[in-house]
Design a protein around this nucleic acid. Sequence first.
DNA 1: CGTCATGCTTACGTTCACGTCATCTTCACT
DNA 2: AGTGAAGATGACGTGAACGTAAGCATGACG
Lengths: 133, 133
Amino acid sequence: MSDDLMGIRAMCEMFDLTPRTLRFYEQKDLLSPLREGQRRLYSRRDRARLKLILRGRRFGVSLEEIRELLDLYDLADQKHLQLPRTIELAERRLAEMRAQRDELDRAIVDLTDQIALARALPDPQDHDHPNAA
Amino acid sequence: MSDDLMGIRAMCEMFDLTPRTLRFYEQKDLLSPLREGQRRLYSRRDRARLKLILRGRRFGVSLEEIRELLDLYDLADQKHLQLPRTIELAERRLAEMRAQRDELDRAIVDLTDQIALARALPDPQDHDHPNAA
DNA sequence: CGTCATGCTTACGTTCACGTCATCTTCACT
DNA sequence: AGTGAAGATGACGTGAACGTAAGCATGACG
């Protein structure tokens, strides 16, 4: 059924990152792939977690905070004694994300305007001779 | 008229960062405050630039790329021989920002849903005795 | 006039997120 | 049995973005 196990090489190609990065995330407790002897085998769950990791990373969330939040996405698991705390964390992070989005919206508007202004400037090629033949 | 010059201390309090950070940004050519003898004096322009710096930083833009973009906001200045290139850069960055916002929107929706799911779970306090008296 | 706080410069230290060897197993082939 | 490619495990290196500590300058104040 869940024979959807992948080696580290396939994972790297799928997510465009290096083996080192995957091992690093594992060492940081963000991933915990199965082992076939020594070799790592990544499951569907690992891939789901990795997607969340990369998403968080893109927004500047530290790996440590990502780790704390990942539990929230494993609601089928045990060990949810930490769940209330995780929910707290998630709501704080959610608020930050909303704030970040609002600021991002403003930045986008500003940058758009500023580009328009710049485009409307006299051609800087006309350096010392604005009225040359 | 533009007597709105501030010392480094005032700047730090206004933007909630350390002197080290301001000097560091200066060394990286992001700021160039006036000097009164040795002391730095920050103008309105410096503050405007600093706001942009902090904004970019929040979205994960590197200081180096911020530096390249800052010129776009100094359209009253000389040295706009680099302007076309700066506009190019700005448009690429703008595209990235839009993409980031879209992804951020998705992340916000997902996280909201996930929090709702977590809240709807059986209380993990009921550990070994879900039906206790 | 001493000293004390504030600021400057220089330089080395630190954290995060990996990159880069060097070395060792293990498995697939010939 | 040999060989080679892929993966594993340390250990050390790196770039970005500051922190921290040492030592000099200077203006304010009792």
